[in-house]
Nucleic acid binder design. Sequence first.
RNA 1: CGGGGCGUAGCGCAGCCUGGUAGCGCAUCUGCUUUGGGAGCAGAGGGUCGCAGGUUCAAAUCCUGCCGCCCCGACCA
Length: 439
Amino acid sequence: MRLSRYFLPLLKETPSEAQIVSHRLMLRAGMLRQEAAGIYAWLPLGLKVLRKIEQIVREEMNRAGAVELLMPTLQLADLWRESGRYDDYGAEMLRIKDRHEREMLYGPTNEEMVTEIFRASVKSYKDLPQNLYQIQWKFRDEQRPRFGVMRGREFLMKDSYSFDLDEAGARRTYNQMFAAYLRIYDRMGLRAIPMRAETGPIGGDLSHEFIILADTGESAVYCDRRVLDLPIPGEDIDYSSDLSGIMRDWTSLYAATEDVHDAARYESEVAEGDRLEARGIEVGQLFYFGDKYSKPMKAVVTGPDGVDRPAQMGSYGVGVSRLLGAIIEASHDDNGIIWPDSVAPFGAAIINLRPGDAAVDEACGKAYAALTKAGFDPLLDDTDGRVGAKFAAMDLIGSPWQLIVGPKGLADGVVELKRRATGERQTLSLDAALAAIGA
RNA sequence: CGGGGCGUAGCGCAGCCUGGUAGCGCAUCUGCUUUGGGAGCAGAGGGUCGCAGGUUCAAAUCCUGCCGCCCCGACCA
């Protein structure tokens, strides 16, 4: 992409409404525009990151054996009456009437609908287990939206729903999701800690929240700091194998959100030097809730014994849009965002210090072609700006690699290569620079 | 939902108390100079002052109502 043709409305000054750093940086970097409280337009740069995060989630869900589908954002109220949640959910649910005065709602979550889909076609234990997921917009009419995408009313969420014949099967699925979640956050450069959590309105008796430690987190968390050093399952993980060991390793060390924190247990189980009390951002949650929905909604399967029983269900959410905020909270400096390579909107930036200079233009063109071919999706700054402003802009939007091409260096046969994360700069030939990036 | 605050140009703000031709910085546009870390000079454009009523000769300013947004708390992926 050529910057001169792109839509990147950078802000020099911070909009007054933004209180936390991720919100400020997303606005300044031209990723986001607020349209109403907790409702945002995703500008091109923000959308690119959103799509990359989405894709990582998708790849890891697929790897874990889940199957993607897409359900509508609008749902019929009658469906929610089957589970009893239409009346229970309260003002957080956005309720809508269509032209026929039919009561509808903008889905805050999809347990009812997926259960309806499941029960319509699955009748036998032979078709189990199933784990269906979608990446779809949700709406929860928060009393107090805040912190940009961290607590929006409209947000993008990966939600999956599993169906098993019995509790043992459901726990196997739960463990698969547990391992997949460890991988998802790790691939985004985040250290997410699974913590025992309350089940909330979704219900059930087994639940973990995945928490990113950050000062701006909304909840207080308590854990054994040794969880920070536990190994993440590799790409070669076999999801058909017994994963209870991973689950055991990660859950044997104390880690709990304030809602379920047990101070006495914490103090007895965690050595004083290992105690970590911090703030955390919740970026995902796992629930096992058995037949909470399948029973009232009659999602039953026939077992090998010929007896019908409600499917054992779980649901698993990842806050996709929230993750942008979480990643920025975890990775930024005074100059702007520091994107991990895996989610960077552009894998590399080429800064043309003198557009119009034939030699500089040619070198930039060569770098652009090589980086494009190597899959970096580069951003070429071909604008006529001040050098300082150009550097500041690329730092602000967090380009992981910055290839700086100017007439002075080129006269000596060199360019400058800067790594955003470390600030490290090297002066080297264009070919060597491209090789260093990996193109 | 309780408490507090704010709506004036794209962004950040002053003006309001004490009513009298709507300002500043940044950004934008034009010209000249400048060009390896957010340039300088000169000029220009852009605002029914959130909306609706009211008071007044006169309202950004005072009064009433409404809408929107932000912050603290309670609540929540």
